[in-house]
Computed example of a mutant assay.
Amino acid sequence: MADAPTGVSRALREAPPDRVVEAADRAIRSVLGASGTVVFVADYRISGLWPVLDSRQPGAGDQALAHRCFSSQQPVRESDEDGRCRLFLPVSVWGERLGVLMVELPEAPGDEMVRRATDIAGEVALALRAADRETDRYRRARRRERLSMAAELQWELLPGRSVSHGAFHLAGQLEPAYTVGGDHFDWSLDDNRLTVTVLNGDGVGLAAALLTAVAVNAMRNARRSGGSLVEQAELASDTVYYQHRGHRHVATVLLELDCDTGRVRAVDAGSPHVMRVRGGTVSRVELEQQLPLGMFAETRYDLQEFDLDPGDRLFVVSDGVWGADPTGRESYGERAMARSMRATRLQPPTEAVGTVMRELQAFHADVDLRDEAVVVCLDWRGPAGWADQ
């Protein structure tokens, strides 16, 4: 048993990328004495969990337990009258929730068995994350309908859907997931600095997605070359301008969090809105709004700064969230959005983004969104280790 994670790791490394799930099943049966396994992956809306192997269709009870595990990110176990046990484990890596691993055991496991099985689920998460670059199998399992060409491009651009660090927890969501066009988010953690961007590409469909892709990659190019936040905005603006001569633009907000201090640097280049939840109060972070990227040649941007206190939560939302007014009433951002954000205070960011999106859908009376929507949620815990001091 002591070599259980090592044995599974070796099996996963040696498996072809499109056979990671089968390799995991064989290895887990061998090292844990399991009678079977099921790997569930979350769909693009994070509204369901689906088995990678179509032949292993679990019942409604197993689905409910898998969802409980996915939401809580804690092991969940249930035994039947014969003593057999189903153990559900989060398949997550670096804070990104990929799915759930169900392990069927002949008897209820002890705490040590659960700990080792949890480690194995983490190994499966790493393998799936790596294999996803080499095969379409897991992407097919995640999608419940065909993506538009624009959405295909946008999902390929994403860095992930959540990430954790000792100082912060971050998550984002795009809607409508299967047809999103120009709205997008990006992030990167480097040298204890977290860079987050939220973009509102001009137009609709594939043209908007292509415009956003140019802006995202221009900002990445500057960032990966050591450029500051201002340099990232200016390179992206010039790149978009010289492609479209001012006829197309990308509204963007760029944030850089110093994970040692909680100091945030910002460039506000358009419409995405930054909201801070402190205690029970939701307030807008007032930033000087500058020109969207690409409107004019050689546009220059100014840096602004603000501080976060440990326990603060930031939401960054696109105009499709803030300005939604499906029935001619006041916009969603006037009051309803703040209520939905306050309702998330006991939820982690991975759940909070879904809550705000569901409330937005309810605001639309459950009809399709008229505009695309991005919600990004950042929890600032304080410098790494602050909570333990």
Rank of each mutant, 00 (worst) to 15 (best):
V264D: 00
Q243F: 12
E156C: 10
M275K: 13
R193W: 04
W155H: 15
D268R: 13
S228M: 02
R263K: 12
G205V: 01
V196D: 03
G262T: 07
M219R: 10
V198G: 07
E231P: 10
V214G: 09
Y178S: 09
D186R: 07
G166M: 03
V264N: 01
Y242I: 04
D260K: 11
D136G: 12
R223F: 08
H247Q: 14
S228W: 01
L153A: 07
L194S: 09
D268V: 00
R248N: 12
G203H: 08
G246H: 06
T179F: 07
L254W: 04
E231L: 02
H273E: 15
N192F: 04
G226W: 00
D183P: 01
T212R: 02
D260I: 04
C259K: 00
Q232R: 13
P176C: 05
A150T: 08
P272D: 08
R161F: 04
G201A: 09
R278D: 08
L158N: 10
R139D: 13
V204Y: 10
V277Y: 08
T195M: 11
V230N: 06
L235T: 06
R223T: 01
W187E: 07
G203A: 07
R144G: 13
L153V: 11
A167P: 08
N221R: 14
N217V: 00
V180I: 14
